[in-house]
Design a protein around this nucleic acid. Structure first.
Length: 252
DNA sequence: CATATTTGACCTGC
DNA sequence: GCAGGTCAAATATG
């Protein structure tokens, strides 16, 4: 990486950090409606730029497997998957606990489901629909962690590098209920990496209110069936969203 | 028919 | 060896 680039990244990181501070400042008081929106946008801008710069100079954690997931010769079905994927050992992750399933505006595709030890409900694995066509690395895991009341935990991994935003529209935060601050976005400092939280959501996250679409198969979290432009989860209201931690994984 | 989901097998890290 | 993350064939859906 060139010196100039390094400097640029440092400066951007500083800007992002300052935005964080500003956000904390605003969060502590009854700030003007819309100010957080602005902060989010600024933060998002910093994060994305940082992400672009960093990715352009060094490969992502599993770029190899992404670019050539089957670089081994005779690939025929299930034989010899060795090295075909890299298990995510580190990197950015953000956890959100919600009381309802919600739509974060991106197109997710389910690729797995596992029963987890000592957990009542199985965990669902989603990747970005545009993983193949745009190489988007974002994934998420969704699991129901409580029964009564139902509580869902969504863990996001990686950045959305895809450009296809399905449901960009108004912001959740752009609410008339300004006293409702139940959306808690916690940007605990993570100075080593940029925090692509906002990259996980299209800057405006859509607020959906279609309870009927929340059809949940008796026992589990399952996304509603919808085609390519689908939303996996719909949030009945923004009230229940809570980002409980950021970057809880160890950063390598 | 194209795309999404299901689900058992496979793989990796601990 | 086990738990959990991912793959991909089979299947479902629109």
């Amino acid at each position: 990486m060139s010196w100039d680039k390094k400097r640029a990244i440092e400066e951007l990181a500083k800007g992002k950090d300052l935005t964080n501070q500003l956000r904390d400042l605003l969060n502590g008081s009854n700030y003007l409606v819309g100010s957080e929106d602005l902060v989010m946008k600024i933060f998002n801008s910093f994060s994305n730029t940082l992400s672009i710069l960093r990715n352009s100079s060094s490969g992502d954690y599993d770029e190899v497997s992404q670019l050539n997931p089957r670089n081994n010769n005779s690939y025929d079905g299930r034989k010899d998957r060795r090295g075909c994927y890299k298990r995510r050992k580190c990197g950015d992750s953000w956890t959100r606990d919600t009381l309802t399933l919600f739509d974060d505006g991106y197109a997710w595709r389910k690729y797995g489901q596992k029963t987890i030890l000592n957990a009542n409900h199985s965990r669902n694995y989603f990747r970005c629909t545009h993983k193949n066509d745009q190489g988007c690395q974002a994934t998420k895991q969704v699991q129901q962690i409580e029964d009564d009341p139902p509580k869902y935990r969504t863990i996001y991994y990686g950045h959305h590098t895809c450009k296809t935003l399905l449901k960009a529209s108004q912001l959740i935060l752009d609410s008339t209920t300004s006293n409702d601050s139940s959306i808690l976005l916690s940007f605990t400092n993570n100075t080593k990496q940029d925090d692509p939280f906002f990259s996980c959501f299209p800057s405006p996250v859509k607020q959906e209110t279609k309870e009927s679409d929340l059809q949940q198969p008796a026992s589990d979290i399952t996304c509603n069936r919808s085609s390519s432009s689908s939303s996996d989860y719909l949030l009945s209201s923004p009230h229940n969203v809570r980002l409980i931690s950021s970057n809880h994984n160890v950063v390598c």
